[in-house]
């Protein structure tokens, strides 16, 4: 295996630099930090915030389809726009946004390999100039239920012994690390992992500079843990952002046909009354 299964979903920083003034392309910065975009962003890029923009304002869920349409319109994104996502933390939240845009049927989605950090490390330009695009008329489709797993799906998956991938760090997987004191709202009542889930930390899929590992290295990594293309796989982490990166790797870089992201992840599972949990090293 010498190439990614769907190489068109990745663009490099040079491609982005060449398309800064391309009206067909909209750059979207999606960061963990709520203020990072404001400290400087790629010229022309708009911002989405995983929490205040992409999530429903009241219940724990994403925007509704209608709200998603309004969002795209306000960002100047039309149905045929090429949307390129990039962000901090090795693109976790960029891929999370990419996943949500797929959920609501946006066709042309790309990720800037290496994310914001790579752009910055190459000394490329950032700006704080505010910008706005004329609103579009946007029609969302979906939701694409085949890329999202809910807790009941996970329960069935575990009962039928189908593969689950826990992409958190090792200490979160074993249950040694639950949450930090003073962060109760982001924690869970119990630590550990979903029984049967294999531990493949997300970070093993990326290199030092934030870009993805080679096709062969990725294939070996997942296959060594029994995560093969013929299976129906669910990935999870703590709030669903790191696992969207693993979902992206499995679906787009390796071409696995059936992969879902469990966005409820540990902050749901570790708080569910009666949900089975395994601690320690696991399988």
């Amino acid at each position: 295996m010498t190439a990614y299964a769907h190489p068109e979903v990745l663009v490099d920083t040079e491609w982005v630099a060449q398309h800064l003034n391309d009206p067909q392309v909209r750059l979207v910065e999606s960061d963990e930090d709520a203020l990072l975009y404001e400290t400087g962003h790629i010229p022309g890029a708009v911002k989405v915030d995983w929490f205040t923009t992409l999530q429903h304002p009241v219940r724990r869920d994403f925007l509704t389809k209608e709200e998603f349409e309004t969002l795209c319109s306000s960002l100047g994104i039309a149905n045929d726009t090429t949307v390129v996502f990039y962000g901090d933390k090795s693109n976790w939240f960029a891929v999370y946004a990419f996943w949500l845009f797929e959920y609501y049927g946006h066709q042309d989605r790309r990720v800037m390999n290496g994310g914001r950090a790579k752009w910055v490390s190459e000394g490329r330009m950032l700006t704080t100039t505010p910008l706005a695009y004329p609103p579009t008329t946007y029609h969302a489709t979906g939701p694409a239920k085949d890329i999202r797993a809910f807790r009941d799906d996970v329960m069935r998956h575990l009962e039928s012994r189908q593969p689950l991938v826990d992409v958190r760090s090792t200490k979160e997987y074993t249950g040694e690390l639950l949450h930090m004191p003073g962060y109760p709202q982001e924690g869970a009542q119990r630590g550990g992992h979903i029984p049967g889930a294999v531990s493949i930390p997300w970070s093993q899929a990326v290199q030092e500079d934030g870009t993805f590992k080679s096709p062969a290295a990725l294939r070996d990594l997942y296959q060594a843990h029994g995560i093969t293309p013929d299976k129906d796989t669910i990935a999870y982490c703590r709030i669903g952002e790191r696992s969207s990166l693993t979902w992206f790797v499995l679906k787009y870089l390796l071409g696995y046909p059936k992969v879902r992201n469990y966005d409820g992840s540990w902050t749901e599972w570790g708080n569910l009354v009666g949900a089975p949990i395994e601690k320690g090293e696991g399988a």
């Binding site: 933390k89 200490k171 690390l177 930090m180 962060y183 703590r238 952002e241 790191r242």
Partner: peptide, 9 residues
Amino acid sequence: MEEVPECMT
């Protein structure tokens, strides 16, 4: 300060 899960600062 404390050991934090990797998705926190």
